[in-house]
């Protein structure tokens, strides 16, 4: 399209370009706002002072201390595992759920939609205590079943740990994916799925080949939200985790309560840097794969 030749068009197009330019500046500004605390904590992770008050010189002491702190490193590993599994399960449950609720007229559809909404609305302490009561109530039954099924040599025990933590995290994470995907499906052109179906694709193939690529941006943003929430949640996790499945936010919470410790700045910086690098690598792999 050659805008310059038609004067009537230049004005509004100029207007839109200006709007986009302004939005770009705004984005930069908001990003600065978002990164201000991050920049600060990275700076302080190299500060010789124990307190985040004055600059007392450069040091890598906190990084050394962090690496030597076994509970912290273990919590980081736990967290990555829990957030990763949570994200995958949430994406699967949330995306299929959103698509099904979008494309079929289920009986009691409103009720199902309202139920999905409950984990978003319920206060964390209520969810944590509710799940704790549930898990402790069913544990003897499940363990009895495991013992009778696998005999006396059975070592598998149902107790608070990784499984319960992941269950809890998926419960409050998958609705985020569902809501994000549903918003996108709402204005998806139904003709696309129709065309696929008309061309003889089964609904499942149509979903996988046509719908999923179309809603991919929403799936990615839903996955990001799920991962972020799982990496950040403290209170529900407190109630459902066991000693070996303690997550990083919980470990940080326990350590930071009595005032900031630069070691925690250091581990945050490392984690952020590591994930950023991983993402860049993943993007590279994806592009090479094409």
């Amino acid at each position: 399209m050659n805008d310059a030749t038609t004067p009537t068009r230049t004005r509004p197009f100029f207007g839109m370009a200006l709007v986009n330019r302004l939005c770009g500046w705004w984005t930069a500004l908001v990003l600065a706002f978002l990164y201000l605390p991050l920049a600060l904590l990275i700076a302080y992770s190299f500060n010789a002072s124990r307190l985040n008050v004055v600059w007392e010189g450069f040091t890598v002491r906190w990084y050394r201390e962090m690496l030597a702190n076994e509970p912290l490193i273990r919590a980081l590993k736990n967290s990555v595992l829990i957030a990763g599994v949570t994200t995958i399960l949430s994406v699967v449950i949330g995306t299929t759920g959103a698509w099904l609720l979008h494309s079929y007229r289920y009986r009691f559809r409103r009720l199902w939609e309202a139920l999905v909404f409950v984990p978003i609305a319920v206060p964390e302490v209520i969810m944590g205590i509710g799940l704790l009561i549930l898990f402790t109530a069913v544990a003897p039954g499940i363990n009895g079943f495991l013992d009778s099924a696998f005999g006396a040599a059975n070592e598998t025990r149902f107790a608070l740990g990784f499984v319960t933590t992941i269950i809890a995290h998926v419960t409050f994470c998958f609705p985020l994916v569902l809501v994000a995907v549903q918003a996108r499906l709402a204005d998806l052109d139904p003709a696309m799925e129709e065309a696929a179906l008309d061309l003889g694709a089964t609904p499942l193939v149509a979903f996988w080949r046509v719908i999923v690529p179309c809603i991919m941006p929403a799936i990615i943003s839903g996955a990001l939200m799920a991962f972020t929430l799982s990496m950040d949640e403290v209170l529900v996790t407190y109630f459902v985790c066991g000693p070996e499945s303690k997550t990083l936010p919980l470990e940080i919470y326990d350590n930071v309560r009595k005032g900031l410790n630069p070691m925690l700045n250091a581990i945050s910086a490392v984690f952020v840097a590591a994930t950023a690098i991983l993402v860049v690598i993943a993007e590279r792999i994806r592009r090479i794969g094409r």
Partner: peptide, 18 residues
Amino acid sequence: MKFIRVLLLLLAVLALPL
């Protein structure tokens, strides 16, 4: 879907030490 595959791969690598 490649996104998911990459995610799974990363996860497997990270879960190894566990």
